[in-house]
């Protein structure tokens, strides 16, 4: 049962993620594009945790921990962008 349910949940999350990536295409601001990256990291963490359980690979939990620890780097790098940098596609 769980052998199907876990990947099914992962598939659902991945589909969800693909839908969320629409936000990157639509924009309209750079901040909106960043949102999708955030969505990506929270979703991927969940997928990794599901995989860890399903594939019996505990190491993937460590990978997930790395993901959440390092997720904020991108945001920090992003807010350092000069504010006049983002006019290119608004």
């Amino acid at each position: 049962m769980m052998d199907v349910a876990l990947p099914a949940v992962a598939v659902f999350l991945l589909l969800n993620l693909v839908a969320g990536m629409l936000r990157v295409y639509r924009g309209p601001t750079l901040a909106d594009r960043m949102l999708a990256a955030l969505l990506f990291s929270t979703t991927t963490v969940a997928i990794l945790l599901l995989m860890a359980e399903w594939m019996a690979m505990p190491a993937l939990r460590h990978v997930a921990l790395l993901f959440v620890m390092l997720a904020s780097i991108l945001s920090l790098a992003f807010v350092g962008l000069p504010r006049d940098a983002d006019e290119e596609d608004t």
Binding site: L66, F67, A71, L81
Partner: peptide, 28 residues
Amino acid sequence: PDLAMAEAAIGAGLTGALMMVAYRRLVA
């Protein structure tokens, strides 16, 4: 999993920040 971990450590942390600051330097 070793490669997944390497890719996560590099991809989640360094690459993005590296590209982002390079980009922002170009802009500046």
